[in-house]
């Protein structure tokens, strides 16, 4: 029995199969199909600790479970925050829940973003669409520990102005003199003041020291593929680039087999991977 030594097991729940009841304190509508849930344990126990990048399995009573990344501040001990895009049966049912309703939570699961390893380096976040949600904890963390990091950039791509996630916070973040926030849209009308074009076009325009940079990417696979290429053109190596993979998940603990990606279980070996660990699989079809 060999466990690869680089595997990190953090914040494992005590009974990983059993959801814990959480109560919805607040529902915030982010965009036409994205909403944020603020949760607290229904039984008065402390809010779970998590590391940026980890996810929970959220259970809607009688309907089912869905893997949802945690989008809140890792230092906030009062609330557990999830940002969800309504795309399937479970997330559509979740969308109908209201303040005071109960939801089951299993977790946290999965590997974190390399926020400790990135200390002393420039940090470049490249995200698209709902991919900003799992990286928001990193943004909170870096802004709260700004002196530990070099240059800090967020490159965010979305479909149209009405798909802009966390729009108010994006405005706030842009106000920081030491946080380079660039937003680009696939299409916009002429009253849009930001960029138009795919998120990869922002990379050549962004200042960072390629030798001392950690890049964190989350978005659709094809977007990540081209983002990796663009970052490598800028001189980053595969071990400086971190991506999140998404696969079907049932158990989140490596038993059900659904999330396998080559030799990796996305639920416990991921979802965050250093790109060099999956580079050989990344371009392959139907893995």
């Amino acid at each position: 029995m060999v466990i690869a030594p680089e595997k990190q097991f953090i914040n494992s729940p005590t009974d990983p199969m059993l959801p814990q009841p959480y109560r919805i304190e607040r529902v915030r509508r982010e965009t036409h199909d994205v909403f944020t849930l603020e949760l607290r344990p229904a039984n008065g126990t402390p809010v779970m600790q998590f590391a940026p990048g980890q996810f929970n399995m959220l259970y809607v009573f009688g309907t089912g479970e869905s893997a949802i990344s945690i989008s809140g501040d890792p230092n906030d001990t009062n609330r557990l925050i999830h940002t969800v895009r309504a795309v399937g049966t479970v997330t559509n049912a979740m969308q109908k829940l209201k303040r005071g309703d109960c939801i089951g939570v299993r977790g946290p699961f999965g590997t974190p973003w390399p926020i400790v390893e990135a200390e002393g380096s420039d940090v470049v976040i490249v995200t698209g669409g709902i991919g900003l949600a799992p990286l928001r904890p990193v943004i909170y963390h870096v802004l709260a520990n700004r002196e530990k990091y070099g240059r800090f950039a967020l490159l965010f791509g979305a479909r149209s102005p009405r798909d802009l996630l966390f729009a108010r916070e994006l405005e706030q973040w842009r106000g920081h003199f030491d946080f380079n926030v660039e937003v680009t849209l696939d299409t916009a009308s002429s009253d849009w003041r930001g960029n138009v074009g795919v998120v990869t076009t922002l990379i050549p325009r962004t200042q960072f020291d390629a030798r001392h940079t950690v890049a964190m990417i989350c978005g659709p696979e094809v977007m990540m593929r081209f983002t990796v290429q663009e970052l490598m053109k800028r001189g980053l190596t595969t071990d400086q680039i971190f991506v999140t993979m998404e696969r079907n998940m049932k158990c989140a603990v490596g038993f059900c087999g659904h999330c396998q990606y080559g030799p990796h279980f996305v639920c416990k070996d991921g979802p965050v991977f250093p790109f060099d660990r999956i580079a050989g699989l990344f371009g392959k079809r139907e893995i």
Binding site: G64, K250, C251, C256, G257, H258
Partner: peptide, 22 residues
């Protein structure tokens, strides 16, 4: 490999999760 099935009774007040071979 397994999958899970979430089921409810007719009243909608009782739910179960079953795991089965997949």
């Amino acid at each position: 490999c397994t999958t899970v099935e979430d089921v409810t009774d007719l009243t909608g007040e009782h739910a179960e999760r079953w795991r089965r071979w997949d």
